[in-house]
């Protein structure tokens, strides 16, 4: 397929996935704020850290307060990572690749955008944010469902899924690295106060129920890290994402993306045959730094191999 169109499809799904991930993060921050311990500056800082938008926020805001952060991440036109902009970019990319997606997919993403513009005319605050978050997740699910159910399994489909998993891998790694920054004892069950933080983290990647089912009870940082890095059956773990990326790349015809194919297969092997002990041996923050760099390299190789016009 055309390189330019592959680029559009890849970014369409990256932006949509980014919108969904951002909403999950906001959702838990907002939930924590409703609990007795409340959301503290650390949580809000973590949000800016994970999304890499701290300087953008600080340039337009003096104080760090939940209502402002909410607005910044949802409706702010000046914030390139706001949900508003993510959905706009997703829709723009879909528009440019209109001929390669099905009518149902286009209708789904276009009406999401039209609805988004309408929603932006209304005020958003702590009282109504949940409904908005649910809506974004629902629209993301709907689009994925329309894609899964209607599009031909050609290269177009592969580039759409590639965008999803590269974005998701990046997001999972960022969340882990921010949240695990200052942990000293990974095996000690967390305190009651911290429990909220940890369950919030699990919820932010939609993993709370899965965690309960897998590990029962006790929340320890090591188990949370293991789940998000190594679980072979959890669709947001890094292992899962890399498995997906590597096997998608295998399906794309031609030799253009050899580097991406090799790098993703290598990283997948490391995760597939890796263990928490290895992680703790080098230190979790260092391990995660390495992972993020590798994921960025894979993204780069995909861009060079397939998406940029020769």
């Amino acid at each position: 397929m055309l390189s330019r169109i592959a680029d559009n499809l890849y970014w369409m799904s990256r932006y949509l996935e980014r919108a969904e991930n951002t909403v999950r993060l906001l959702d838990v921050t907002q939930t924590v704020s409703l609990m007795p311990v409340g959301a503290n500056q650390d949580d809000l800082n973590a949000l800016l850290e994970i999304s890499g938008l701290r300087s953008g926020y600080q340039s337009s805001h003096h104080a760090l307060a939940l209502p402002d952060v909410l607005k910044f991440f949802t409706m702010d036109e000046a914030n390139p990572g706001s949900i508003y902009n993510c959905l706009r970019m997703a829709r723009d990319n879909a528009h440019a690749a209109r001929g390669k997606i099905t009518a149902e997919m286009w209708e789904s993403i276009n009406s999401t955008w039209l609805d988004m513009r309408l929603r932006r005319t209304r005020e958003i605050g702590v009282w109504n944010a949940n409904a908005f978050f649910d809506w974004v997740k629902e629209r993301s699910h709907l689009f994925r469902g329309a894609t899964y159910g209607t599009i031909m399994r050609t290269d177009a489909y592969q580039f759409i899924r590639l965008g999803t998993f590269v974005e998701r891998a990046d997001n999972s790694a960022r969340i882990l690295s921010v949240k695990f920054h200052r942990i000293e004892d990974y095996d000690r069950p967390v305190s009651v106060a911290d429990l909220y933080q940890w369950t919030a983290l699990l919820r932010s990647v939609g993993a709370f129920e899965a965690y309960q089912e897998m590990y029962r009870g006790e929340v320890t940082p090591a188990k949370v890290a293991e789940m998000l890095i190594f679980r072979p059956d959890f669709p947001r773990s890094l292992r899962w994402c890399l498995d997906s990326i590597a096997s998608i790349l295998v399906k794309i015809r031609g030799d253009a993306g050899l580097a991406a194919k090799r790098q993703s297969a290598e990283l997948f092997a490391r995760l597939n045959y890796g263990h928490m002990d290895d992680v703790l041996a080098v230190g979790l923050p260092e391990y995660l730094q390495g992972l993020m760099a590798d994921i960025a390299d894979i993204g780069d190789s995909i861009r060079k191999g397939y998406l940029e016009a020769v």
Partner: peptide, 28 residues
């Protein structure tokens, strides 16, 4: 383009080489 099942290209997708027109695709 979609109804005919052919590529929708822009000028940047095409190039001239060896007296023929080519489009840039993910497979070359």
């Amino acid at each position: 383009a979609q109804q005919m099942g052919v590529e929708l290209v822009e000028g940047v997708d095409l190039l001239v080489k060896n007296e023929h027109v080519y489009m840039r695709t993910t497979a070359g």
